[in-house]
Simulated scan of single mutants.
Amino acid sequence: MKVVTIATDLEHPFLRRLLVPSCDAMGLNLVVIQANKKGFRPRDKLAILTDHLARCAPDELVMFTDAYDTLFIRGEEYIRKVHASFSHRVVFSAEPNSWPLGNLGLALQKDPPVRPYPYLNSGGFIGLAGDILALCAKYPEPPSEQFPLLRHLRTHDYDTDKLFRFSDQYYWTLVHLLESDTVGLDNGAVLFENFAPAVANFCELTRWTSDFRARGKQAASYRREHARLQARLQSPSGAAQVHFAASLTKAVVLDLLDEGQLPSWLVGVLRQ
């Protein structure tokens, strides 16, 4: 089994201080693929990952993780056991927010939401290399044409491909909806847990980030997220990967690390 991540900045503090040391501590084989920083977009991860998977054995278990906001607190034995318990061959992390489609993403859902994490998050997923590669080959582009609602919106000049093509999460959300027998979500956070805040309107996160960039630690959004995350982290995660997906959340985690305020269940793995 290998853990794969894609990074344009090998000196990013979260990658260098949290993800890499946590994988070392858990005995995980982390493969860091360096991508060209110039013009890199999240959707480019798909092509880079496809190229890597094509050189893997089809039956090799591969766990993808984002580079700049994740770390691991459990090792391969746990990951293999839990992955085998799923009925789906490929399992994605899940989150409380429908991003990037927002309310439109809710309209595409075929079934009621499964709490506490109803919606796909592409910052972590696991499956055999051959299974993931087969999905990439079957859907070389976001399969938006297979959704009547998205086709209808396109006739009114609302083209979701143009709006959201930058995001690999858009791509994988559509693939999951079409391939629900193969692609499952970790709705209960047994493999992947997302610590980003739940929001009614995803634009709130953009406003919070702008507030933080303008005012730093004095921003109301920063103080609110600092307090929320400290309270949330009092309860240890039962997952293998923990994900601080929002940019403000990630900034708070790095500050808590510098302040010596991260809980022992997180930083303890870095000292093993």
Rank of each mutant, 00 (worst) to 15 (best):
V3H: 00
V4R: 01
A7S: 14
T8H: 14
L10T: 05
E11M: 13
H12I: 14
R17K: 12
L18N: 02
L19T: 07
P21Y: 00
S22G: 05
L28R: 04
L28N: 06
N29V: 06
L30F: 05
V31N: 02
I33A: 04
I33W: 00
Q34D: 12
N36W: 00
K37E: 07
K38D: 07
F40T: 10
R41L: 10
P42G: 13
P42H: 06
D44V: 13
L46D: 12
R55E: 13
C56K: 13
C56D: 12
A57R: 13
D59I: 01
L61Y: 09
V62T: 02
V62A: 08
T65M: 08
D66P: 08
Y68Q: 13
D69W: 03
D69R: 07
L71R: 07
F72N: 02
R74I: 01
R74A: 14
R80C: 06
H83F: 05
R89L: 11
F92N: 03
P96I: 01
P100A: 03
G105R: 05
K110S: 15
D111S: 15
D111R: 15
D111W: 09
Y117F: 14
P118F: 09
L120S: 00
G124K: 03
F125N: 06
I126E: 05
G127P: 02
L128N: 15
A129R: 01
G130S: 03
D131Q: 10
A134W: 01
C136K: 07
C136L: 12
C136V: 05
A137T: 13
K138M: 08
Y139Q: 00
P143L: 02
S144F: 01
E145D: 11
Q146T: 02
F147Y: 03
L150D: 04
H152R: 15
H152L: 15
L153G: 13
R154N: 12
H156C: 09
D159S: 08
T160D: 09
D161E: 08
K162H: 05
R165K: 10
F166E: 07
D168A: 02
L174H: 02
L177I: 08
E179W: 11
D181T: 15
T182S: 12
L185Q: 05
G188F: 08
A189D: 11
V190Y: 09
F192H: 07
N194Y: 03
N201M: 11
L205G: 00
T206P: 07
R207V: 13
R213S: 12
R213E: 14
K217P: 11
S221L: 03
H226I: 09
L229K: 05
Q230T: 15
R232A: 15
L233P: 04
S237Q: 04
G238R: 08
A240Y: 06
F244L: 04
A245E: 10
A246Y: 00
A251V: 09
V252W: 02
V253E: 06
L254S: 08
D255A: 12
D258C: 10
E259W: 07
Q261S: 11
P263F: 00
W265I: 12
L266F: 09
V267T: 06
V269C: 15
V269E: 03
R271Q: 14
